[in-house]
Nucleic acid binder design. Structure first.
Lengths: 186, 186
DNA sequence: TCCTAATCTTGCCATTGACAAGATGTCACT
DNA sequence: AGTGACATCTTGTCAATGGCAAGATTAGGA
């Protein structure tokens, strides 16, 4: 399948997405080079264009795939809001390349149908995950608590990835996230 | 000062930083082009290199300046944790270009001395801003509540900028932020 | 005044994204 | 099996970019 001797790669689309994940882990999504992906996959520099059109097309596909994987990860938490939050942070850290693309609409086509569908699926799981959250002292807005939960998980994940958290937070994102998230979901 | 007829620009460093803010607002920090900045400032394409070395150098200066401006904005909230959070979100939205660079260390030199100093100053104001936060039901870790507060403000700001929040949140970031942040600081 | 250093310009090269045109393989249909 | 249409991939090209080197111009102090 991945035989480089054949004229047709056979599985180039998947190979390019896999190479993109590697490259993004190494240099970030901004410095991603389509020609580098082509080299990693052992094809010519213009091959990626056929499958994704341009760089934005490739990142759109990656983002859509990422939203589905996030939905899958959140589903595993199955009803426990705290664990859903921990899973959210864990996804951001362990599948960093996906996460970094998903929330940078300037890198992809935000109007892509598949992407919007995948994001919708992830959003549904997300809302379901925080539905069991204990509301604040007085129940104000049911959406507010969901938004607050999403914000704190997303914020912690983003700050962790940015590397700006103080050292005493430790090096285990799951444990650190659980501690912080318990402030909302005791 | 900004006379384009003279050989020496006179205030090129400042002009380039201002042009960078405009450009980032238009195309984002990733697509920033030094040559475009040079054109906006009316100088040759190699002029920016003399002041900033390379693109990372320019963004480092921008990030450092941004951290000082953030510290300034947070100081204005003066002791009120809720308003500090609102100011944080407001800074992210109204000075988007700064904010988007500040938390993307892959774009600049994270080991720059001036940057580290500015980030330290902003961090001190941040910690002071949330010091008056009411702790959770049982006081666990004094740092935990500060981290939770930072996370929720940063997360909401990031999600707002990413444009992924549902429509019903409205179009006023300050009001929306205040509502969400009240979940932590009632 | 003069001269040293800072500032800016011109010229250059490798890399990249995107496009066009052609080569190669695959597959449905007969 | 044969064939033609189509998908897949390659080669070639162009403009734009970042970065470097060498030179021109100017400011400001000795």
């Amino acid at each position: 399948m991945t035989d480089s001797r054949t004229y047709h790669h056979g599985d180039l689309r998947r190979a390019l997405l896999a190479a993109a994940l590697e490259a993004i882990d190494e240099v970030g999504p901004a410095a991603l080079s389509l020609r580098d992906l082509a080299r990693r996959a052992g094809v010519s520099h213009a091959a990626p264009a056929h499958h994704f059109g341009d760089k934005a097309g490739l990142l759109t596909a990656l983002a859509a795939q990422g939203f589905d994987l996030l939905a899958q990860a959140l589903t595993a938490a199955d009803g426990d809001p705290l664990e859903a939050g921990v899973a959210y942070v864990d996804f951001a850290v362990t599948r960093r390349a996906y996460f970094e693309v998903m929330f940078r609409p300037e890198f992809y086509r935000a109007d892509d149908a598949e992407l919007i569908a995948a994001r919708g699926r992830a959003g549904a799981v997300l809302r379901a995950g925080v539905a069991a959250l204990p509301t604040g002292s007085a129940p104000v807005d049911p959406g507010r608590d969901a938004l607050a939960a999403w914000s704190i998980a997303h914020g912690f994940a983003t700050l962790w990835l940015a590397g700006v958290l103080p050292d005493r937070v430790g090096d285990n994102p799951r444990d650190a996230a659980r501690t912080v998230l318990r402030r909302l979901a005791p």
